[in-house]
Amino acid sequence: MSEVREVARKLLTDGTVRVIVGWEDARRGARPVFVTDPADTERLIFDTRCVHNLVTYLNPRRDNVAELGKIGLVVKGCDAKAVAGLLREAQLTRDDVVLIGVRCGGVLEEAELPKAASLSPENVAPRCYGCDNREPELVDHLLGESQPEPPRPVMTIDERVAALDAQPLEERWAFWTEQFSKCVRCYACRQVCPLCVCERCVAEKSRPQWIEAPPHPRGNLSWNITRALHLAGRCVDCGECERFCPVGIPLSLVNRKLQHIVAERYGYTVSDDPESPAPIGDYRLDDKQEFIK
């Protein structure tokens, strides 16, 4: 933690960056903070409550963050994958940002806690299980001590996806249509996603109206399928969409399923290597086509 403050202070003092985007301890727990004054770097924290993927603030849509000046961003391994995603898709150039990487052994499910807690199967964010990037490579500064593997949650996301997969079609349909029917179309899932970069989302296109605007089950299904599909091979599994969803739709299950699909079909896993081409937008002559007649 003190290391983060130190590096942040140095970057601000020597003018390398104009703002540090990190975490602070606030009234309700950990939350993003934007530090522009070196003296305020004391507010920066890093602990297991630092769940947020702050890369969303690098998103080109966030002009009110960009106007603060060059950004120094604190990233966990999973967050670095989102930076790589933005680089891969030319939404960002590497010089636009200074990345302060922190070694991370997993985070809690919730950021809104008065104190950090050590991780247990009951409180660990399920997405952390099996983390392959506890030490981000795509960074300018790598801080903190080497971290152990995050604990295995009581039930993993993979197990839950598998349990859904094992259900008959009608049961899955009943499950998802019920889940999506809760959607109020606040678009928090999109707004918080570091990789939802479109200047104008298809949900806002009205000529024609591809996605019906009112939050009825039919429009909701269309929106949720589209959101998931547009992130196929791009989603970094930061889980922010699910965490921000005010009505609790288990979006991580559908995101994880898509990760399985691109992994099985194209051997692709999202990494923090910006050079690896994304699976959608790329192709191989011998791609599997068993579903095509």
Partner: peptide
Amino acid sequence: VCASPSAIASSACLRPGV
């Protein structure tokens, strides 16, 4: 939170005990 008309809720969506 994951209730559905099916049996999925208990197995897929919920973490046992929570």
